[in-house]
Every structure is written in structure tokens, then in C-alpha cells.
Design a protein around this nucleic acid. Structure first.
Lengths: 200, 200
DNA sequence: GTCTATATCTCGATAGAC
DNA sequence: GTCTATCGAGATATAGAC
């Protein structure tokens, strides 16, 4: 971690550490060490630990929004939903740490919750738009219920990975093979749900 | 928080604070204040912050195991699965904080992961036992995949609650009405999956 | 068992030399 | 822009009176 623009290196280091141990579990000194600079340099580039964290979040938010925009929105409900979920899976496979970061901040009652809720809200709107013709506006089959379920099914695999690895005899759930298997499982579930909803 | 055995009060205070802000986000002073004792008394009853946390986890683990044992295991796959999920939902409605605590520690790469994996393992074994006759031993439809999915569907609602509240116009997702609705949704999904698996 | 007082450390953040 | 040095606050943990 000694190549490239120092400000960028610090951001990368903060990203890795925050998403591994949470904001409260990481000191600015830790970040500096990993970035290969001294602590005071971190404060030169980012005026506080808090701002540093916000910049980490912001970078993810931008990447996330860009991916969502690029998803083709043609076809029937099933095609759109599968494509949307594939795009999201692609995104988190490229950005493992994003899911952990967001989950950790939501779970720990972060002060940055409004900023985080923007990202969650983007996904929710998409799911709502895709399912709008197929499900009621309220009640147990409303789009928002399915949104939470899809998010749980997809995210939980990545969040539980450290615990699953121990349970599955040490195999890495994040290796290419298991990840592909998980993706198939998710699509199978989506088909099962759409089928019962009468969408296809 | 000034009634009962002091050691118990300290444990309760630690439970509430750790599960709300994470272990690193809480100081022993915070715990002492909430328990209505002085900081040194916390160290008298528990020799370190770390031991205090382990005792909090242990108490949940015991309660969790007791609930799992009490679930009736008769009937067909569908009955058993619905009953199992209801029992788990009952448990986390009574122990909201447990889910947050476990998730936070898994996500943040806790040093206590082995202890936590025990609780996850208990659930996994149950799901595996219930589904064993209905799904293959490996691949995208293996029981372990469904275990992760069920866990995600159920847990995620409680974990995302703070962010959902903001998105749903301020309504509390943990109030009795929304919780009942969520439970219906979960059972609907279980039926959809069993139906496609050919279980009923 | 609970307290006050304190030792020791590490934190976030700043000052100022280079 | 990056460093050394340091500040003041707050952290974990302990000593010892009561």
C-alpha cells in the first residue's frame, strides 16, 4: 500500500479497515499505518475521522448509482428482475466491503444513517418499479416486503461468509465456485416467487 | 435500571449498549452509568470488557438453545419448517438485540466468532434436518443455501429496521402490526419455495 | 461489594519545523 | 505535503479506603 496518490491510498486503507472492523473499531493511526503515512498526514488530507468515513461511503455510493443506471430496463418482469439481481450481485462481488460497511453502520445505529439510507432507497425504488404491476401496494405481498427479502437473501450470504466458512469445513464461500452456486440459488428462488405470484 | 442483582444489572446494561452500538462503540463507563454503578464495580464483577461481552453472548446462547429444543419436531416438512420459523421469529421478537449483536460481531470480524458460530450452527443443523429428504446434498438447492436464505429473509428485516423506518415515512417496522405482516410474508415465501421443491 | 482516586495507555486532533 | 512532538480527553484497568 505505497503506490499512487497518497490521498487515494488513505481512502483505500480506511475503506478496508472500516469495513472489516467498523468505524469505532479503527483508529486513525491504524489507517495511517496501512496507508504507509504518518497520522498527521491523514488529518492533512481529511479534516477528521468522520469526514474520512464519509468520503469512503461517498465513493461507494457513486459507484453504486452508476451501476444501477446502467442496468437495461427492457423486457418482462422476470427478465428485468433477474437482470437487476445479477447486476447487484456483480456489484457486490466487485465491492465485497460495501455490503459489510453498510450493514455495520445500519446495525450499529450510525450517525451516517441518512446518507446510507439513500443507497438502500435507490435499490428499493428499483424493486418497487419492477414489481409494481404484479403485487399489491400494501400488506404481506407488497413490493417493500420483497425488497427486504431479496436484500436479505443476497446480502446475507456475504455477511455470513466468515461464519459459514467455519461451518462448511473451512471452504471459502467467497471463492468463484461457491459464489456461482449461490447465484444460481438466488435465481432459483426468484423464479419460485415469481411463479407463485403468477408473473410467469 | 437500579433494581435486582448488580451483576445482573450490569449484564443487562452491557447487552443493551453493545447490541446498539457495537462492542468498540461502548465504554465500560457507559455500561456502569446505565447500570447505576461506578466503573470500578463493573471490573469487580467482570474482569474485563471482553469477559463482560462474552457473558452477554453466553446468556443469549443459552436462551437460544433452550428455545430450539422446545420446538415440536413432528409432522411433515411443511409443518416442521413453518413451526421452526415461527419459533425463531418468536425468539427474536423477544430478543431483538440478539440478532443485532450476532450480526455485528460476524460482520466486524469479531474475535468471538467461534463462540458465535455455535449459535449459527445450531440453526443450520435444524434446517438441514428438516429439509434433508427434499433437497440434494450439494449444489444450488442444498439445504445450506436455503439456510442462508431463510436467515437473510428473517434477520434482515430486523437489521434493516432503522433504515426502513426512514424510508417508510417514519412508521416503525418493529411495531406489532408491521411485524405481523412481515411474518405472513415470510410464511408465504416458505410456501412458495416448498411448492416449487415439490414438498407439498 | 462499592466506592474514590489514580496509573497508564491510546485516542482524535493540532502546532510548527522542514 | 509530510513529518515529529505534543495536547487534552477519555479509554481500560487497578489500588486501597470503607
Amino acid at each position: 500500500m505505497t503506490n499512487g496518490d497518497p490521498a487515494e491510498r488513505i481512502l483505500d486503507a480506511a475503506d478496508e479497515l472500516f469495513s472489516a472492523r467498523g468505524i469505532a473499531g479503527v483508529s486513525v493511526r491504524d489507517v495511517a499505518e496501512r496507508a504507509g503515512v504518518k497520522k498527521a498526514s491523514v488529518f492533512y488530507h481529511y479534516k477528521s475521522k468522520d469526514e474520512l468515513f464519509e468520503r469512503v461511503l461517498e465513493r461507494y455510493y457513486t459507484a453504486h448509482a452508476r451501476v444501477l443506471e446502467s442496468v437495461d430496463s427492457g423486457g418482462d418482469v422476470s427478465e428485468r428482475l433477474h437482470r437487476f439481481i445479477d447486476a447487484y450481485l456483480d456489484f457486490i462481488e466487485d465491492h465485497h466491503r460495501y455490503v459489510r460497511l453498510v450493514q455495520m453502520e445500519i446495525t450499529s445505529g450510525s450517525a451516517h444513517l441518512p446518507q446510507i439510507a439513500r443507497g438502500v432507497g435507490l435499490l428499493h425504488e428499483r424493486v418497487q418499479a419492477i414489481l409494481s404491476g404484479l403485487v399489491p401496494d400494501s400488506g404481506p405481498l407488497a413490493a417493500r416486503q420483497f425488497f427486504v427479502s431479496f436484500a436479505g437473501i443476497v446480502n446475507n450470504y456475504y455477511l455470513y461468509a466468515p461464519a459459514l466458512s467455519a461451518m462448511w469445513g473451512g471452504a471459502d464461500p467467497l471463492a468463484a465456485g461457491p459464489r456461482r452456486e449461490r447465484r444460481e440459488h438466488v435465481h432459483w428462488i426468484v423464479d419460485a416467487l415469481l411463479s407463485r405470484l403468477g408473473g410467469k
